[in-house]
C-alpha cells in the first residue's frame, strides 16, 4: 500500500490494542441491529473468533501482501449457514459483518492522519467483500435446500404399488415432465425385477396434460418393460387427453389402453389366468 513502511500500520496496531473493547462494541451494535433475535453471548463467541482471524489479514493487507482469506471465509460460511437454518434474512447476516465497520470508524474518526484514513478505507472494502460473501453463502445454502426438496418431491409423487401377485400399478398424478417420466420409468423397471411382476398398469387419471414428449416417454417405458419381458397397460386416459392424443397424431400402436384402472386390472388378471367371480347370495 504505502511505499515507506515507517509508521507501522496504525490500524492493525489499533485493532490489536483495542481488541476487547472493539469486539464488545461490535456485539452491542449487532445485538441492537438484530433486535434481540440473537443473544450477546452467542454473537460474542462468533465475533471473537472472527476478529482473531481478521487481525492478521489486516496486517498482511497493510503490508501490501495478498492476505489468505481462507480461514475468514470458512468461519463466515459456518456463521451464515447456521443463520440460514435459524431463519435470519441475508441482510441481517450481512449487517452483523458491516457493523464492525461502524465500530472501527468510531474508534478512528478523531484521528486525522491521512495514512490511517487510507488504511481504514482498505479495511472497509475488505469487510464489504466479506459481507457480500455471506450473501453468496446464504443463497447457496438456500439453493441446496430447494434442490433437496425438489428431489424428495420427485420421489414422493411417483409410487409404484403392487396390486396383485405379479401386477404392479403406477398411479401418476399432476404434471408429467421429462424428468418425472424418467424417474417413473426407472422406478417401474426396477420394481418389475424386484417383485418379479410381468404385468404393469400405468394409470394417468391424475395427469392434467399430455404432450408429444410425455407420450413419447410413456411409449418408451412400455417398450423398455416389454424388452424385459413385462407387459404394460395404460389406463385412465381422460376425454380431453384422448382428444389431444388423437389431435397430435400420437400412435399407441399395439399398446393396450383401458378407460379405467379397474378395466386395466381385470385385463391384467385375465392375462395372469385369474378369474374374479362374485359369489351367489353374497352381494353387498
Amino acid at each position: 500500500m504505502t511505499a515507506d513502511a515507517e509508521p507501522v500500520h496504525r490500524l492493525a496496531g489499533l485493532l490489536r490494542a483495542n481488541g476487547d473493547t472493539l469486539v464488545r462494541r461490535w456485539v452491542d451494535t449487532a445485538v441492537e441491529e438484530l433486535r434481540g433475535r440473537s443473544t450477546g453471548q452467542e454473537l460474542e463467541r462468533d465475533f471473537r473468533e472472527f476478529y482473531t482471524a481478521l487481525t492478521p489479514v489486516v496486517e498482511e493487507t497493510a503490508r501490501g501482501g495478498a492476505a489468505d482469506l481462507g480461514e475468514l471465509k470458512s468461519l463466515l460460511e459456518e456463521y451464515s449457514r447456521t443463520r440460514v437454518k435459524q431463519g435470519f434474512t441475508p441482510s441481517e447476516t450481512a449487517v452483523s459483518v458491516f457493523s464492525l465497520k461502524r465500530v472501527v470508524f468510531e474508534l478512528t474518526e478523531s484521528d486525522d492522519d491521512p495514512k490511517l484514513f487510507r488504511e481504514v478505507l482498505a479495511f472497509s472494502s475488505l469487510l464489504d467483500g466479506l459481507g457480500l460473501f455471506t450473501f453468496e453463502i446464504y443463497a447457496r445454502a438456500r439453493e441446496e435446500i430447494i434442490n433437496e426438496q425438489s428431489e424428495q418431491l420427485l420421489e414422493l409423487t411417483t409410487p409404484v404399488v403392487k396390486i396383485w401377485e405379479g401386477v404392479l400399478a403406477v398411479p401418476l398424478v399432476g404434471t408429467l415432465d421429462s424428468a418425472r417420466t424418467q424417474v417413473v420409468m426407472e422406478k417401474l423397471l426396477e420394481a418389475l425385477i424386484e417383485t418379479g411382476s410381468d404385468q404393469a398398469i400405468i394409470d394417468i387419471t391424475g395427469v392434467l396434460a399430455v404432450d408429444t414428449q410425455v407420450a413419447q416417454h410413456l411409449l418408451k417405458t412400455v417398450v423398455a418393460a416389454r424388452l424385459m419381458g413385462a407387459e404394460c397397460v395404460v389406463s385412465g386416459i381422460r376425454p380431453q387427453i384422448a382428444q389431444t392424443i388423437v389431435a397430435l397424431g400420437i400412435e399407441f400402436g399395439d399398446i393396450v389402453t383401458k378407460a379405467s384402472l379397474a378395466d386395466a386390472l381385470r385385463h391384467a388378471l385375465r392375462r395372469e389366468g385369474v378369474d374374479v367371480v362374485r359369489q351367489a347370495g353374497r352381494t353387498g
Partner: peptide
C-alpha cells in the same frame, strides 16, 4: 434384461 439395459436399447 436389466432396467438400465432396456432403457439403453429403447
Amino acid at each position: 434384461m436389466r432396467p438400465a439395459v432396456a432403457i439403453t436399447l429403447v
